[in-house]
Design a protein around this nucleic acid. Structure first.
Length: 570
DNA sequence: CGCTTTTGACCAGCGC
DNA sequence: GCGCTGGTCAAAAGCG
């Protein structure tokens, strides 16, 4: 049961890239990984999700050690829900309600001896409501009332009042929290909606341009027989006349499902489809995988025979990668994810071995990364990410994940490797690079690499990114362009928001809060700074080096202690 | 005991 | 076809 309870998987991927609204409900899995800490959001889910346990949630509430029965919550909501303030029931009523709970304890102490009062309580409507609501505690309530009747002294009365007030305050606080959370979820939904619209427009633009391209291409190749449908269906992925269209990269190689011909799908559905299909498959596979987890985790790429066709296509496709160069003495930059090393190789032309890591935060997370020190400067660590996480990410991991995914998207949506082997930037996204205000120094697209790779060079001072190291045969990616600037905040904001909502309840440790804050700052920096990479450097810089801010937890860059010293290896 | 790392073997793609 | 290279697998060892 440990790793891949299916739920998380759906959400996961969505959260990372598509930010599908459904993400909002996708905590449970995380629960798994980040047990102990639970949040407000979890509580709600618990009601619906049979798997979730109630205890942790209830126990962690700030509510005093008194009574923590959900039943009571409902009860109060019934009574005073509409107007918290105005609810103030008449003293008697209030008293009675509270007393019911108090009596519960009193009863315990006294050994409960009256059932007659219970019948009394059931009489009136509101009172009856209380009693009914606390059906489970019926005897207790009865006892309480009797207790009250028996002990009429002022002392108990006062203490009861105090307790009643305290109880009410607790309930009100609870209600407030719920409202806040609802508001947050609403905001998240709005955010998702707006982002969806943005992406849709983005896709439409791409589609139009692709149509244009296809038309041109067709006129060249098929001047004789014009079959207009030939290439149109390819817009969603796959090759069209040797061209790699952007869609196939949108999911970094995971959009195989979208490769099937489904022309009727709207862009949004199209985006969703691969996720859902993958998620469904994950769910199906999980059972089998639980028995043989090794298989599941190791053969992600070849898992499903059903995917054969897609894989064949995918095999021919090139995967987008995001490479991050950063100075770090640590064997690996801590990006907040859990990684498992699965291989190490000596790469040609570099005395330092290249280590291969796989994300282990979810059973079948396809994300992998390679870590290698720079041959010329051993202090520079090159980390190459590939794939998208299919699970929710802890706040500490969101910065890097959203950064790399966004960079990859930028790369894929803005560039079109064509048959000539060069990368052509989409005019919409990279217009007139030479005219851009910023020299775009720190991000490059490698046209010669086997995979389309965007390299983010963070080895320079983010504040002074004007010097570029070595752009040999590499295509400069002018990130700071108007359209990119328009999209990035969406992407980042979305990732942040959706994940924030997801994790709002999971990590509320001080560190986590700080991380979230720094993350928010990062987002602000990214959205405000015209130079994306400079801001990116600032963001990632916070993750690199001494910090390892999240290492206290398990999810903090689980860097292998010293294995990667690159001293040995084959 | 379960998870991670190590490391030699294996496989696929590519160029010659 | 062969060799090179990058990438992955999986048994064994290590570790907490």
């Amino acid at each position: 049961m440990a790793k891949g309870s299916g739920l998380s998987i759906d959400t996961d991927r969505i959260g990372c890239f598509l930010h599908h609204p459904t993400v909002i409900n996708s905590f449970p899995d995380d629960h798994h990984h980040h047990h102990h800490h639970n949040n407000n959001s979890n509580r709600r889910l618990n009601h619906h999700h049979p798997k979730l346990k109630l205890e942790p949630m209830e126990t962690t509430q700030q509510v005093p050690n008194t009574i923590q029965f959900p039943v009571n919550l409902n009860c109060t909501s019934h009574d005073g829900d509409e107007d918290d303030e105005g609810v103030d029931p008449p003293p008697s009523c209030d008293k009675r309600r509270v007393i019911g709970e108090m009596d519960f304890f009193a009863d315990r102490k006294q050994g409960g001896r009256n059932e007659t009062a219970a019948a009394d309580a059931g009489g009136s409507d509101k009172k009856g409501l209380d009693v009914n609501v606390n059906t489970g505690l019926r005897l207790l309530t009865a006892n309480t009332s009797t207790c009250q009747s028996t002990a009429e002294d002022g002392k108990s009365h006062n203490s009861d009042d105090k307790r009643a007030k305290a109880e009410r305050a607790v309930l009100q606080a609870e209600l407030e929290r719920m409202n806040v959370e609802n508001q947050r979820l609403r905001d998240a939904l709005n955010q998702v909606t707006s982002n969806y619209n943005t992406l849709q427009m983005h896709l439409i633009t791409l589609t139009q341009h692709q149509n244009h391209r296809n038309r041109d291409h067709k006129t060249e190749n098929n001047s004789a027989n014009g079959n207009p449908e030939v290439n149109n269906n390819r817009l969603h992925g796959g090759f069209s006349g040797g061209q790699v269209v952007p869609r196939q990269f949108m999911d970094l190689g995971l959009a195989s499902a979208a490769d099937t011909d489904e022309p009727a799908l709207s862009p949004s559905e199209e985006e969703r489809l691969p996720v859902n299909n993958a998620a469904a498959k994950e769910l199906c596979d999980d059972h089998a995988r639980e028995d043989s987890p090794e298989d599941g985790s190791n053969k992600v790429a070849r898992l499903n025979p059903a995917k054969n066709v897609d894989q064949a296509t995918e095999a021919t496709m090139r995967k987008a990668r995001v490479s991050v160069r950063a100075r770090s003495e640590a064997p690996m930059i801590s990006d907040g994810c859990q990684w498992r090393k699965y291989g190490q190789k000596m790469a040609k032309g570099n005395p330092c071995p290249r280590a291969y890591y796989r994300c282990t935060m979810a059973a079948a997370c396809p994300v992998r990364k390679q870590v290698q020190r720079c041959a010329e400067d051993r202090s520079i660590l090159t980390t190459t990410y590939e794939g998208n996480h299919n699970h929710p990410l802890p706040p500490a991991a969101m910065a890097m994940a959203s950064t790399t995914s966004s960079a990859a998207r930028m790369l894929l949506s803005g560039s079109m490797p064509s048959s000539d082997g060069h990368i052509h930037h989409h005019p919409n996204f990279f217009p007139r690079p030479s005219l851009l205000p910023c020299p775009s120094t720190m991000a490059t697209i490698s046209a010669s690499a086997p995979f389309p790779t965007v390299t983010l060079d963070l080895t320079q001072n983010p504040n002074n990114p004007l010097q570029f190291q070595r752009p040999p045969a590499q295509f400069q990616l002018p990130f700071p362009n108007p359209n990119a600037a328009a999209i990035l905040p969406q992407l980042f904001g979305q990732a942040i928001h959706s994940n924030q909502s997801k994790f709002s309840g999971l990590h509320m440790s001080h560190d986590a809060v700080q991380q979230q804050n720094s993350l928010a700052e990062t987002v602000n920096a990214l959205t405000a700074d015209p130079n994306f990479t400079a801001a990116l450097a600032a963001a990632i810089g916070s993750l690199i080096g001494g910090g390892q801010p999240n290492n206290n937890g398990n999810n903090g860059g689980s860097i292998s202690s010293g294995n990667n010293n690159s001293s040995d290896s084959k």
